[in-house]
Design a binder for these strands. Structure first.
Ligand code: MN
Ligand code: MN
Ligand code: MN
Ligand code: MN
Lengths: 229, 229
DNA sequence: CAAGATTATTTGACCCTTCAAACATTAGCA
DNA sequence: TGCTAATGTTTGAAGGGTCAAATAATCTTG
């Protein structure tokens, strides 16, 4: 059995036919054309060629059916497609649309090993809930995410994400201490570390490090800033 | 300025020319052909076409030089190339060779947003040293990684990675308890959670959960197994 | 400087993918 | 059952990318 590298187009035809085969209508010329955004006449030609290559059973005006060989290839591609898709949506948090087109573009170049590692990384993050939460928070401050400028109390600013101080609604005593440390509206601030029970919180501002109670931090309003510290 | 989508091939020519431009020889037909694995006659044709598209200044028997427009595109592609490359080598831990060809294949489909997120994820992992270590450990047990079977004390088995017990060198009292729980050579074992200071360690074996001191765990030798739990 | 060697281009051809237009078949309905 | 609309195929043409062989320019060296 020859192992010749199939073109990206051929792979896309097979993947599409596989998907359509699973519908009651089966894989028909018109549906394939619509799915791949080409003219029906182009599909006719492709179907003929795929049949000659032993990947498909098709006769004019009929329904395309994958041969075992064709099905094998198609499932392979479909696997790469969903592997990448999952990474883009679940791990990177991208929209289904962007994930879809990017996955379908890249699926033709991804090797089994690369796919495997990508899946492993996704699993790794998901298997560490606290880390995954942190990553999601960081991600939510990234470019292209909406809403881009979340506002919250300083206590909810995820460690590792920068924030801009909006207001400081604390008592006079703490306020004095904070002002001395430079915690004033407009300044960049970050949470360094949160103790196991969420209290106290280590905060960094203008190069200083200070510690405060969670309840106090909650009274400092911040706006999240894109990017890591 | 028209924003027509350039073909992957054209992007590769531009990227290659950019790289070669930075060498003392400059970008010559033969060198481009060697880099892209095509015949010189093919390059001649491509160079002519690129020049007509205003991406290149080239005249027969000369040295190819990018126009501002061509340089802009080339730098864009080169950026995607290295962005992906870094992800594959640094974050996924793949070989330079595999990373190189995969990056060069995928670079034509990656959007700025996807690239950005990928870079952010890499930064995120690197900015959390303890997590990054854990990830590297998990990675090292994955398919395609060598050496595949690291051996260490149970205390060094990263949470989320399976291990096979090799030997149990503890005192009689603990040994009895462990044997009752099923911790015997050959059994699959995993570390569930490590307390903040690394002690005690929650271990899972044969469906049971038990807690032990780090010092004790160190005396249980294990061989790391591929894949997550 | 004048071969001869090296490097590059031109030419003619091929394959792949696509389209529009003309033609053929099939399906749905009266 | 037959007619029309919907669907599918054929044909002819184009563009992109590639190669081998023939041809041309440039470089190197005695
Ligand atoms: Mn695809
Ligand atoms: Mn796909
Ligand atoms: Mn490339
Ligand atoms: Mn590249």
């Amino acid at each position: 059995m020859k192992i010749e590298r199939l073109s990206a187009k051929v792979e896309d035809y097979l993947e599409t036919i596989l998907r359509l085969s699973e519908t009651p209508r089966g894989a028909r010329t018109g549906d394939i054309a619509a799915a791949l955004n080409v003219q029906p006449s182009t599909v006719s030609a492709a179907l003929k060629s795929l049949t000659e290559q032993g990947l498909l059973n098709y006769e004019p005006y009929g329904v395309a059916e994958l041969t075992p060989k064709g099905r094998h290839v198609a499932e392979e591609i479909a696997g790469r497609h969903v592997g990448l898709l999952r990474f883009f949506t679940d791990t990177l948090g991208l929209t289904p649309e962007e994930s879809e087109v990017t996955a379908c573009g890249m699926e033709h170049d991804v090797t089994p090993l690369v796919l495997d590692r990508i899946a492993l990384l996704g699993e790794f993050l998901r298997s560490h809930p606290e880390l995954n939460e942190k990553w999601r928070a960081v991600r939510s401050t990234a470019k292209g995410e909406r809403p881009p400028g979340v506002e919250s109390g300083l206590d909810e600013l995820p460690p590792g994400v920068r924030g801009v101080v909006l207001s400081v609604d604390v008592g006079a005593a703490l306020r004095k201490r904070l002002v001395e440390m430079g915690v004033t509206p407009g300044v960049l601030i970050a949470v360094e570390r949160v103790a196991p029970l969420g209290d106290p919180i280590a905060v960094e501002v203008r190069g200083y490090r200070l510690s405060m109670r969670k309840a106090e931090a909650a009274k400092i309003r911040v706006k999240w800033r894109p990017g890591l510290i």
